[in-house]
Design a protein around this nucleic acid. Sequence first.
DNA 1: GACCAGGCACATC
DNA 2: GATGTGCATGGT
Length: 214
Amino acid sequence: MFPLVERLYEALFARYGEQRWWPSKSGAAWEIVAGAVLTQNCAWRNVEKALGNLASLGVDTPQRLLALPLGALREAIRPAGFFMQKSLYLQEAARFHIGHAAAFSTPCAAAELHARRARLLRVRGVGRETADSILLYAFNHPIFVIDAYTRRVAERHLRIPRAATLPYDALQAIFMRNLPNDTRLYNEYHALIVRQCKDTCRKQTCGCAWLQIL
DNA sequence: GACCAGGCACATC
DNA sequence: GATGTGCATGGT
């Protein structure tokens, strides 16, 4: 179907090597969940400021985040933008994490993974991309993340028709049908796509010719 | 000063 | 199911 999907992974890996995402400090599941919420429509450097503010307040667990007054939470995450809604989203995510993180960390079959994704999508502030980022990077499940970078790469390098506007699940299915079901590979591939985009051309609207890597 | 950044909820058609 | 709008900060 789209043999370029796998070839692009090989090309990116050959160029950049192992990325070892998620790019948070501790690697703790909760920090990944919080980062996934904070990075919505926001540059990662600003997420780091917000996470740094929380860390300096001693907030490194979902319990401590819920213990923080809402006003203090909002001030801490202000650099990441949309702080009024993201503060509430973080509280929802914290409650979810306290209740479900242990169960979500266990390996599971495809049907159960689908059920866990559906459960995550019921958390206010968690859409498809955030849910998949959490499942892949916080809980190590084999699911492919579609984001703005992925759409750009799909359109420009993989020549997937209308990749920029294809529904999320449809584009995700294309990637997953053309790759082995492998958590490690999905993890690295998405990280490599982000690396490639940041390395070559920053803007979504930029029409410059990218480096020919296939 | 305009444009952009690893989206999401909600309303509307 | 597809499309439009509000949300907010910080870098280029």
